[in-house]
Design a protein around this nucleic acid. Sequence first.
DNA 1: CATGAATGAGGATTCATTCAT
DNA 2: TATGAATGAATCCTCATTCAT
Lengths: 199, 199, 199, 199
Amino acid sequence: MRARLERERETRRESIIEATEQLLNEKTFESITMDDIAMRSDFAKASIYQYFKNKEELLIKVFSRILEIKCRLIKEKCLSQADPVQAIRNYIRLEFEFIRRYPWGPRVAATFPFIDYQEVNYLFALYEQKKKLIAAIIQRGQTGGIFVKADLDVFTNMIISAGVGFVNYFSTHMSSDLQSPEIEMFISTIIKGITKGEQ
Amino acid sequence: MRARLERERETRRESIIEATEQLLNEKTFESITMDDIAMRSDFAKASIYQYFKNKEELLIKVFSRILEIKCRLIKEKCLSQADPVQAIRNYIRLEFEFIRRYPWGPRVAATFPFIDYQEVNYLFALYEQKKKLIAAIIQRGQTGGIFVKADLDVFTNMIISAGVGFVNYFSTHMSSDLQSPEIEMFISTIIKGITKGEQ
Amino acid sequence: MRARLERERETRRESIIEATEQLLNEKTFESITMDDIAMRSDFAKASIYQYFKNKEELLIKVFSRILEIKCRLIKEKCLSQADPVQAIRNYIRLEFEFIRRYPWGPRVAATFPFIDYQEVNYLFALYEQKKKLIAAIIQRGQTGGIFVKADLDVFTNMIISAGVGFVNYFSTHMSSDLQSPEIEMFISTIIKGITKGEQ
Amino acid sequence: MRARLERERETRRESIIEATEQLLNEKTFESITMDDIAMRSDFAKASIYQYFKNKEELLIKVFSRILEIKCRLIKEKCLSQADPVQAIRNYIRLEFEFIRRYPWGPRVAATFPFIDYQEVNYLFALYEQKKKLIAAIIQRGQTGGIFVKADLDVFTNMIISAGVGFVNYFSTHMSSDLQSPEIEMFISTIIKGITKGEQ
DNA sequence: CATGAATGAGGATTCATTCAT
DNA sequence: TATGAATGAATCCTCATTCAT
């Protein structure tokens, strides 16, 4: 029965996180008030403090949750792909799909207060995990003689920065339509750029 | 003499803007208080309201100033380049240099409150201006048979999103060192991706 | 079996009171939270309300308990003394020992909220009881021709105020060391002051 | 003109302090809210923070002010007295008068939060100053062969603790009437206790 | 123009107490 | 009886903005 209570508690935590995510579509975390969150999650303001020590901890939880989902998706949809070119293509599309679901991601990441916090270490771990997944794809492509030679770490960093950067910028400043021709052009450009010989 | 007064007034406006820019290196615009700005700019808090209607107008001014500078730099350093490949290369490097000078740029852009405001139109005009500059470069490359064929608008959007996106992300999450090998690799990849045939 | 239940109930009440007393060594009653008390007494916060109507009642209980102990001690250690001088001497020392055990006594007494409350009457009764004990000692001294003549009530009030006052102040502001020479000097001074003729 | 502004500012600070003192007659500092103070001092709540960093600083200011007054009074009314017996008598009466004016003194002192604070050092200095004044009186009495022999420091501590202690306790628990016979009896007792030979 | 002062409208957080199980 | 959960009502403090001089 202790387990059931724990599970219920977790459910309520999630409601609050979800309410916060909804609000993040509408405004900055800083400008979201605990009243907003309370209203949206149908709790009394004071109740939220039973689930999160303070506003900052809530932000960190919201943020790490989205990273977790991202990692899971990458694992599911990219690593399974045998063809490295297709895997990279999928990865970039996936970043795009992801941003459609959580458009506030870049905004929150941009203003994330990197104060010392035990939880922050967990966030870094998640970042690293994601990086390793991409590196695995690239290495496969290099071993297979498909991708250009380059230091694996540099290559990975470049791909992630280019991919996430493009997606963030494009969806924020131009369009978040998955069908936009710019996306396909970007992917082709990158693929052509990193594959050996002619495509 | 009216002119001198006007000039002095402008100087003081700039002091305030500069103080705000300094503070933006340290924290979010939302979390910067008018007291902070007053302190840093050596004005009394109330005096700031003689130069800017309110905090929001100040933000817009800060933001449009940085766009103006960006446009000027692009004109100076890229359009002059006859070789389109070199021009694109320069453009991306320039975005990078730019972000070194104004690291808060992406953060501010990400959280910019796009409320209706007369001034905001001016911002859009600046964006458009920048886009036209890049388009001009690309068109030259296409006409010269160097760049791949593609809708000019799409091509331009893609280049800007890829360039600014990469630079924003890489400098925020990885390193803001101009010598990082990732940067050169990114530029080569993009160039290879958009040029016809072999390099 | 009803009796056993009642006894258990009383035991639990005492645990809570003891937890509160511990906390009073660390901070003001006002700044002690029900959460603090719950934590310290190993009860759930809500459970405390099964034993005390509210925080105020708890304070009164804590406070009257300490007065009860005080009265008992005076009876045991002073009234037994045949020699009135020695009895007074003992009384003052006893107040001192008492404050070593409950250093928060004066602080709590000073901020005691004298709101109308049935229980408060009981407190007054205890005060009166203590006063009578001291009066008895003094009267014995006067009857025996040892103490100076003076209205018994005035005499008693004076002795209590001087004794408790000195002890409170000295232990709070100077030292709570039972061996401090000031204590002996105070006692001698008072004794000399209230006894007839030479000492 | 800078001076006038400064003076006005000081006046407003004093208003706030006075409002707080009034309220201290009615309840604990902890239970006084900034709203109370604002109401009583006819300022907006936010304005108070222009004069005091926070509630705690305000308390310290209130508290040090009363100590200052006390020191000044002792200087004026006791040191002038040539006769040491009369000086001590005056001193105790003065403590009593003082408590009539600031009955909340003991209560506030009892619950004073002795957290590290620059200002707290100042408080200690004031305490020391007061102690020196009393020591001077006693020394005069000892030199003149009127008071009993005893270590000056111990003697002083004892007198202060007895005096302030009695006054605090008596006025809080019994009566704050300056004419109460207990007061005269206490003073006589102490005087008799500390003077040599017969009185 | 410049600025010291004043403040209304919040905002995060706390806490005694109640309720449902 | 015991307690996890919920919450209304504060409470301290902040801040953009206005006003009077």
